[in-house]
Computed example of a mutant assay.
Amino acid sequence: MNQYKDFATELVEMLGNENVKIDEPMKKHTSFRVGGPVDILITPQSFEQVKGAIKFCRKNLIPYFIMGNGSNLLVKDGGVRGVIIKLCNLDKIETKEERITAQGGVLLSRVSNEAVKNCLTGFEFASGIPGSVGGALTMNAGAYNGEVSQVIENALVIDKEGNLITLNKEQLELGYRISSIMKKNYTVLEATFKFNKGDYEKIIGRINDLTRRRREKQPLEYPSAGSTFKRPEGYFAAKLIEDSGLKGVHVGDAEVSKKHSGFIINKGNAAAKDILDLIQIVKDTVKEKFNVDLHTEVMIIGEDI
Rank of each mutant, 00 (worst) to 15 (best):
residue 228 T to P: 01
residue 147 E to H: 00
residue 255 E to D: 00
residue 254 A to P: 02
residue 195 F to N: 03
residue 189 L to H: 07
residue 130 P to L: 06
residue 139 M to F: 09
residue 178 I to S: 10
residue 173 E to Y: 01
residue 55 K to E: 15
residue 241 I to A: 07
residue 102 A to G: 01
residue 37 P to H: 13
residue 144 Y to M: 13
residue 15 L to N: 05
residue 86 K to M: 00
residue 112 S to G: 11
residue 300 I to F: 08
residue 185 N to M: 03
residue 257 S to I: 09
residue 137 L to M: 05
residue 149 S to A: 15
residue 207 I to R: 14
residue 143 A to M: 03
residue 146 G to L: 02
residue 15 L to Q: 08
residue 249 V to I: 15
residue 289 K to L: 07
residue 28 K to D: 01
residue 137 L to K: 13
residue 178 I to F: 04
residue 209 D to W: 14
residue 135 G to C: 05
residue 67 M to Q: 13
residue 188 V to F: 04
residue 30 T to L: 08
residue 7 F to P: 02
residue 53 A to H: 10
residue 150 Q to M: 04
residue 216 E to W: 03
residue 41 L to D: 06
residue 6 D to Y: 08
residue 223 P to W: 12
residue 24 E to A: 11
residue 195 F to T: 02
residue 270 A to W: 09
residue 241 I to R: 08
residue 103 Q to G: 08
residue 175 G to Q: 11
residue 87 L to P: 01
residue 18 E to R: 13
residue 77 D to C: 06
residue 116 V to P: 02
residue 93 I to T: 09
residue 72 N to T: 04
residue 79 G to E: 07
residue 151 V to T: 11
residue 285 T to V: 12
residue 103 Q to R: 10
residue 93 I to G: 03
residue 168 N to A: 06
residue 30 T to N: 01
residue 137 L to I: 03
residue 65 F to E: 14
residue 216 E to Y: 00
residue 208 N to S: 04
residue 171 Q to D: 12
residue 111 V to P: 00
residue 143 A to N: 05
residue 231 R to D: 04
residue 296 T to C: 07
residue 249 V to P: 10
residue 97 E to F: 10
residue 203 I to Q: 04
residue 215 R to V: 08
residue 13 E to T: 05
residue 35 G to A: 04
residue 222 Y to R: 00
residue 161 E to A: 12
residue 113 N to G: 00
residue 101 T to F: 06
residue 117 K to S: 02
residue 247 K to Q: 13
residue 13 E to C: 06
residue 119 C to R: 15
residue 109 S to R: 15
residue 124 E to P: 01
residue 61 L to N: 14
residue 80 V to G: 03
residue 55 K to N: 13
residue 41 L to A: 05
residue 150 Q to A: 02
residue 203 I to A: 04
residue 53 A to K: 10
residue 215 R to M: 14
residue 78 G to Q: 02
residue 169 K to D: 08
residue 204 I to T: 08
residue 120 L to C: 09
residue 39 D to Y: 03
residue 300 I to H: 12
residue 166 T to C: 14
residue 48 E to P: 01
residue 144 Y to C: 13
residue 84 I to G: 06
residue 99 R to T: 11
residue 158 I to C: 05
residue 264 I to L: 15
residue 1 M to W: 00
residue 1 M to R: 12
residue 27 K to M: 14
residue 23 D to H: 05
residue 46 S to A: 02
residue 294 L to D: 10
residue 106 V to Q: 11
residue 11 L to S: 03
residue 40 I to T: 11
residue 258 K to E: 14
residue 52 G to A: 13
residue 226 G to F: 10
residue 46 S to T: 15
residue 94 E to N: 11
residue 99 R to H: 13
residue 31 S to V: 08
residue 126 A to Q: 00
residue 104 G to Q: 10
residue 215 R to N: 14
residue 21 K to F: 13
residue 150 Q to Y: 02
residue 189 L to E: 00
residue 207 I to W: 12
residue 214 R to T: 02
residue 115 A to E: 04
residue 148 V to G: 01
residue 234 G to V: 09
residue 44 P to V: 05
residue 159 D to N: 13
residue 45 Q to W: 07
residue 109 S to V: 15
residue 125 F to C: 03
residue 195 F to H: 09
residue 271 A to I: 10
residue 209 D to R: 14
residue 265 I to G: 03
residue 65 F to Q: 09
residue 99 R to F: 13
residue 260 H to N: 00
residue 172 L to E: 06
residue 4 Y to P: 04
residue 28 K to S: 07
residue 54 I to M: 10
residue 8 A to H: 06
residue 246 L to V: 10
